[in-house]
């Protein structure tokens, strides 16, 4: 027990220290890569709150990411508001859209929830895709005036790192909270939850708003790092990619999605250097992983680790 507690504290601490000093010895390329991993990892972790801890088939999570990104981008380009307004707008927009979509979706059972959700999400995408004089349509918005302090590669990196760490900490607390525990009970058995006095739909709605808000935050970080937004940020293929990150990393673990994001983003980047056909390599790797490790990478090692510690006990 004390040993696992030790591990649970030391590993993140070492990792965090390494990340904090990365700009001292990493090249621009690595700083950019890690920024992307953190952003997509935060996005995947927010999805996993619903998927792994709430048992909800949120098929189109990228919509909230895109909405957050557009909210920040639009406030920065179209209004003279201070920068903090732009960054506060992201979780707000993601959360509100989540609330709207959630209100009509949570009354449905698992599969039909997912299907209505993907339909509504696609509808949002079509509007953004075509509303040229507001969202820039399929061109998107480029050259967004990100505040000077965080516009450089290193500045954006530190901002992303800080926001991601704080967000992950909050999400972790939420999962450990009475709400989070109840949410996991809803995942395991919604019918029984109702019978012990839990209003399942309200909990699911709150979960969706939280997940949507953090996806929005991830979107605003994307604007910080890239300085542009485009409709692909809320296209369904991205939703599937982050779903893969969750399943690949292990969706019953908290840090699994972050690991999954690291694997996928690195694969995309490094294989992309060597061959134009990196998606094929990615596809083959994914197929192998799904065939061989159905419970995800981290889930796989967790299971082995539990088995080992169990056998030591006996």
């Amino acid at each position: 027990m004390t040993q696992s507690r030790f591990q649970a504290l030391v590993i993140p601490a070492v990792l965090l220290l390494a990340l904090a000093f990365l700009p001292q010895f990493g090249t621009r390329f690595y700083i950019y890569l890690v920024s992307l991993i953190l952003i997509q990892g935060l996005l995947a972790t927010s999805l996993n709150l619903l998927l792994g801890f709430g048992g909800m088939y949120q098929f189109h999570h990228a919509v909230f990411y895109g909405t957050g990104a557009y909210a920040t981008a639009l406030v920065l380009t179209k209004t003279g508001s201070p920068a903090w307004v732009a960054f506060a707008a992201a979780p707000l927009a993601g959360g509100i859209l989540s609330l709207l979509i959630g209100v009509v979706c949570v009354r449905l059972s698992k599969l039909y929830f997912g299907m209505l959700q993907i339909s509504l999400g696609s509808l949002v995408w079509t509007i953004v895709y075509r509303w040229y004089n507001f969202t820039g349509g399929d061109d998107g918005i480029h050259g967004i005036p990100v505040p000077d302090a965080i516009s450089s590669g290193v500045g954006a990196y530190y901002f992303t790192l800080a926001v991601t760490v704080v967000s992950l900490f909050i999400l972790y607390r939420i999962i450990r909270s009475p709400f989070g525990m109840t949410f996991q009970a809803v995942r395991d058995n919604p019918v029984r939850c109702e019978a012990i006095g839990v209003n399942v739909r309200v909990h699911q709605l709150i979960g969706m708003v939280i997940a949507g808000a953090f996806a929005g935050i991830a979107g605003s970080l994307f604007v910080t790092v890239e300085g542009s937004v485009f409709p692909e940020l809320m296209f369904w293929t991205l939703s599937l990619e982050i779903l893969i990150m969750c399943l690949l990393g292990g969706w019953f673990t908290f840090f699994g999605p972050m690991l999954g994001a690291a694997v996928i983003v690195s694969l995309q980047t490094f294989v992309g250097i060597y061959t134009e056909y990196w998606t094929m390599v990615l596809g083959i790797v994914l197929m192998m992983l799904i065939l061989l490790l159905p419970q995800g990478v981290l889930g796989f090692f967790m299971e082995r680790w539990i088995k080992i510690s169990r056998s030591e006990e006996n």
Partner: peptide
Amino acid sequence: LSRQRRSFNLFANA
């Protein structure tokens, strides 16, 4: 927790 109406508490340690 449900009976104590604490299931909406987001930040305490359960």
